[in-house]
């Protein structure tokens, strides 16, 4: 009952279980289950970090939490300065959830043991598009909050009123380019990973795991960096 290589790649996104609702049913695909799992584990991790930091006793987990907090604050401050502190929670959770999702994909060979839900959720364009749309909505919400709705509407007709369609197209292209970048990177890596694991499953995939951790971190960094830069573009010009 081993699958061929083509089937493994084509069935990366497959239905896991269904919940019948009325006439039809809600299908839980593997990427949906994987994104729930990675989101829940990220939430658990963050709650544990927060508890141990609040506790006040110097423990390993607490110092890891402080390290992550300081790195994040330096990151946002280096892009938009002191006002970046208010955007830090969103950027941090975006970064964290993408990292957790990407790292879940490193365990995807376990799918051969019947656990087909272990894939990176980001190999599904729907997931990355959802992340990107959330990010862009947050960018616009932040710019409305920072400079008021009048100025926010006015920035669509900068520098000249006839630029309005171009500006609107630019806003629509942002989530598409963000999501296709994340999806393409992760799916390409997933395909390479599956091919190599199918051909030689002895030592060679370890190198790819290291490469996968590196790309996962870089992609999460780039995604949150771009969201930060979009925030800076929309609020920095006018304030």
């Amino acid at each position: 009952m081993t699958e061929s290589l083509q089937e493994i790649i084509q069935h990366s996104i497959r239905p896991i279980f269904e919940i019948p609702v009325g006439e039809g049913s809600i299908v839980f695909s593997s990427t949906l289950v994987a994104s729930i799992v990675s989101g829940a584990s990220f939430l658990l991790f963050v709650i544990l970090l927060g508890k141990s930091v609040k506790n006040g006793k110097p423990k390993v987990l607490a110092s890891i939490g402080e390290l992550i907090f300081l790195a994040l604050r330096n990151f946002t401050r280096s892009i938009i300065g002191e006002i970046g502190d208010s955007y830090m929670p969103f950027i941090g959770s975006l970064f964290g959830i993408i990292v957790f999702s990407n790292f879940l994909g490193l365990f995807s060979p376990l799918g051969g043991m019947g656990m087909h839900w272990i894939v990176s959720p980001n190999i599904d364009l729907s997931v990355t598009l959802g992340l990107a749309i959330t990010g862009i909505l947050y960018v616009h919400g932040a710019s409305i909050g920072a400079m008021g709705i009048g100025k926010w509407l006015h920035h669509f007709i900068e520098p000249y009123p006839f630029m309005l369609p171009i500006n609107i197209i630019e806003e629509l292209v942002k989530p598409i380019s963000l999501s296709v970048r994340l999806f393409g990177n992760l799916f390409g890596e997933h395909v390479v990973y599956e091919i190599v694991f199918y051909l030689i499953s002895f030592v060679v995939p370890v190198l790819l795991i290291v490469l996968g951790m590196f790309t996962g971190l870089i992609q999460a960094y780039v995604f949150s960096l771009l969201i930060l830069i979009y925030i800076k573009e929309t609020i920095g010009v006018h304030t």
């Binding site: 380019s177 296709v180 970048r181 990177n185 992609q219 780039v222 960096l225 830069i229």
Partner: peptide, 12 residues
């Protein structure tokens, strides 16, 4: 890193 990612996205 930002510009590398932007260039890479074209190949992606």
């Amino acid at each position: 890193i930002l510009s590398l990612a932007l260039i890479e996205s074209l190949a992606i």
